[in-house]
Amino acid sequence: CHSECLGNCSQPDDPTKCVACRNFYLDGRCVETCPPPYYHFQDWRCVNFSFCQDLHHKCKNSRRQGCHQYVIHNNKCIPECPSGYTMNSSNLLCTPCLGPCPKVCHLLEGEKTIDSVTSAQELRGCTVINGSLIINIRGGNNLAAELEANLGLIEEISGYLKIRRSYALVSLSFFRKLRLIRGETLEIGNYSFYALDNQNLRQLWDWSKHNLTITQGKLFFHYNPKLCLSEIHKMEEVSGTKGRQERNDIALKTNGDQASCENELLKFSYIRTSFDKILLRWEPYWPPDFRDLLGFMLFYKEAPYQNVTEFDGQDACGSNSWTVVDIDPPLRSNDPKSQNHPGWLMRGLKPWTQYAIFVKTLVTFSDERRTYGAKSDIIYVQTDATNPSVPLDPISVSNSSSQIILKWKPPSDPNGNITHYLVFWERQAEDSELFELDYCLKGLKLPSRTWSPPFESEDSQKHNQSEYEDSAGECCSCPKTDSQILKELEESSFRKTFEDYLHNVVFVPRKT
């Protein structure tokens, strides 16, 4: 048989008469490798580009789960590009990614509803959504962080984005990388972005840091009482949809009607710091009717980097990364020049730590249904340095008659930039024990000054392991946590139920 035959053949030295091919099969003959313009397919066939392209389009058009959109890589027609490569849609070739590779997620039936953290986790790592997304989240724990972890990498949506009755959302900033909504599939009414009845939605994105392009379709905003109209108009300008909307697409009466839409800028007039305090004062603000001013709200939190936005980490279910302080308005003076500047002394802060701070007014709604208010920009203030805590785990070892090696770990709280350490030492008198000992005694162990690591005695271990207080009263049991108490109650309830079950099964009433 021919060298490319495997198993047997019907005619000697003829690659077209093989029972099976050793390498690849091409047009009725066995070959060692697939010549151009053919590609290896499933490690035994040679196919042309049209064959591989037909497989790709067949799966793409069917949208069946589990099928493969075949691509070409290293002269092979394979189910998908290997790690580190992405497909070129024009020629199906796998090309190296520039940075992290995109991950295209194809949605069944063309859309997916995100109504819980669990459903959001199914899209973790996706960068391109081939379909439409509907966000409908009523509640949950730590929602802002969970949504950002699972949806934060999405850069492109081919269909539309719909935010509907998501009472738990305060902001859409968890879509931190969303840059493009194509609108290839539109919501009824030709809408590519749809926001309806979101009672706590206050911000779409921080438009000073976020760009969003909507290729096709219109915007729809109705019944978002805490979303200011200025935020919607800003989205029109940034996304390129200005002029597409009709009169009733953006409701003037049901958007922002319960919001404090600040239209003035508060400026800080005085800032002073110490290692654990920050004193702030800002310019006074009074609405047209000074009785509408209820006070100020001061927001602050630790910020290692200057990239904080107002609604980071917030949701309507209680999660809030900001510390909020309510401040009463100052006494009002008739003389504008003698107006008191409101302020606040922030206490209990960490030394040498940068804080993000902003302040906003708290006002009631005027009778004319106009909203007044003022808010400052987010500023960054760093507390002063102070003395560091003591170095940890000092170790001293003498390696000769004239040297001592000293080692330690950095302090747990540096409280500033540590530039150097101060080492103090003092000579001590020799131990009298060394002169009084009889060095001729056998088995004498000389006193040693070398360091030995501390260890816990058996008594201390027994005390720590004991669940009861000892007789001397030195140790006591740790208080039980809520989960331990709940577990004990469940076990007790189970024992009672099981005992009742045994009584009912074992003891049967005697027939009379």
Results as ranks from 00 to 15, higher is better:
103 K>M: 10
104 V>K: 04
105 C>Q: 00
107 L>K: 03
108 L>H: 12
108 L>C: 04
108 L>G: 14
109 E>P: 05
110 G>S: 07
110 G>N: 15
112 K>Q: 14
113 T>Y: 13
113 T>E: 10
113 T>S: 13
114 I>F: 03
115 D>V: 05
120 A>M: 09
122 E>P: 06
123 L>R: 00
124 R>Y: 01
126 C>L: 00
127 T>I: 11
127 T>E: 01
128 V>W: 15
128 V>Q: 01
131 G>T: 02
134 I>K: 02
135 I>P: 00
135 I>M: 12
137 I>A: 10
138 R>H: 09
143 L>V: 10
143 L>P: 01
146 E>V: 06
146 E>M: 09
147 L>H: 01
147 L>N: 01
148 E>W: 15
150 N>M: 10
151 L>G: 03
152 G>W: 04
153 L>P: 12
155 E>A: 05
155 E>M: 03
156 E>W: 06
158 S>M: 08
158 S>V: 07
160 Y>T: 05
162 K>V: 07
162 K>Q: 14
164 R>T: 15
164 R>P: 04
167 Y>I: 13
169 L>M: 06
170 V>C: 06
171 S>E: 03
173 S>V: 10
175 F>D: 00
176 R>C: 04
178 L>E: 00
179 R>P: 00
182 R>H: 07
184 E>L: 08
188 I>M: 15
189 G>A: 11
189 G>I: 01
189 G>F: 06
190 N>V: 07
193 F>W: 05
193 F>Q: 00
195 A>D: 02
198 N>P: 00
200 N>D: 06
200 N>G: 09
200 N>K: 15
201 L>A: 02
203 Q>Y: 12
204 L>H: 00
204 L>V: 07
205 W>P: 01
206 D>V: 09
206 D>M: 06
207 W>I: 04
207 W>M: 06
207 W>S: 04
208 S>I: 04
208 S>T: 09
209 K>V: 09
212 L>P: 02
212 L>N: 01
212 L>W: 06
213 T>D: 12
214 I>P: 00
214 I>M: 11
216 Q>P: 02
217 G>S: 02
218 K>T: 15
222 H>Y: 02
224 N>H: 10
227 L>G: 00
227 L>T: 03
228 C>G: 03
229 L>R: 02
230 S>P: 12
236 E>Q: 15
237 E>I: 13
239 S>K: 06
241 T>V: 08
241 T>G: 15
241 T>P: 10
242 K>W: 15
243 G>T: 14
244 R>K: 13
245 Q>I: 10
245 Q>L: 05
245 Q>W: 15
245 Q>A: 15
246 E>M: 14
246 E>F: 10
247 R>N: 04
248 N>I: 09
249 D>Y: 08
252 L>Y: 10
253 K>R: 05
255 N>R: 04
255 N>S: 08
256 G>M: 06
259 A>Y: 03
259 A>E: 04
260 S>M: 11
260 S>Y: 07
263 N>L: 08
265 L>V: 13
265 L>E: 15
267 K>M: 12
268 F>N: 00
273 T>I: 07
273 T>F: 12
274 S>H: 03
277 K>M: 05
278 I>L: 15
281 R>N: 11
282 W>T: 04
283 E>L: 07
284 P>L: 13
284 P>R: 06
286 W>K: 10
287 P>A: 02
288 P>Y: 03
291 R>K: 08
291 R>G: 09
292 D>Q: 04
292 D>G: 04
292 D>C: 04
295 G>A: 03
297 M>A: 13
298 L>I: 04
298 L>D: 01
299 F>C: 02
299 F>G: 06
300 Y>P: 00
301 K>E: 02
302 E>M: 07
307 N>R: 03
312 D>Q: 04
313 G>P: 07
313 G>L: 04
313 G>K: 14
313 G>I: 04
313 G>H: 07
314 Q>P: 02
314 Q>L: 10
316 A>S: 12
317 C>W: 04
319 S>Q: 09
321 S>I: 05
321 S>D: 04
322 W>R: 01
322 W>H: 05
324 V>E: 15
324 V>G: 12
325 V>M: 10
327 I>T: 03
330 P>Q: 09
330 P>G: 03
330 P>N: 09
331 L>M: 11
332 R>S: 04
332 R>N: 10
333 S>I: 12
334 N>L: 05
334 N>M: 06
334 N>Y: 09
336 P>I: 08
339 Q>H: 08
339 Q>T: 07
340 N>P: 07
341 H>M: 05
341 H>V: 08
342 P>F: 08
342 P>H: 08
342 P>N: 12
343 G>R: 07
344 W>F: 13
346 M>P: 00
347 R>V: 13
348 G>Y: 02
349 L>H: 00
349 L>S: 02
350 K>D: 05
351 P>R: 08
352 W>M: 14
353 T>C: 03
353 T>H: 14
354 Q>I: 05
354 Q>G: 03
356 A>I: 02
361 T>H: 03
361 T>N: 03
362 L>H: 15
365 F>P: 10
367 D>R: 05
367 D>K: 04
368 E>A: 05
368 E>Y: 09
370 R>W: 12
372 Y>N: 15
373 G>N: 08
375 K>Y: 06
376 S>T: 04
378 I>S: 01
378 I>K: 02
379 I>H: 05
380 Y>E: 01
381 V>A: 01
384 D>F: 02
385 A>T: 12
386 T>V: 08
386 T>G: 15
386 T>Y: 04
390 V>M: 10
392 L>R: 12
397 V>H: 13
403 Q>A: 05
405 I>G: 08
406 L>R: 02
406 L>M: 02
407 K>S: 02
408 W>V: 03
409 K>T: 04
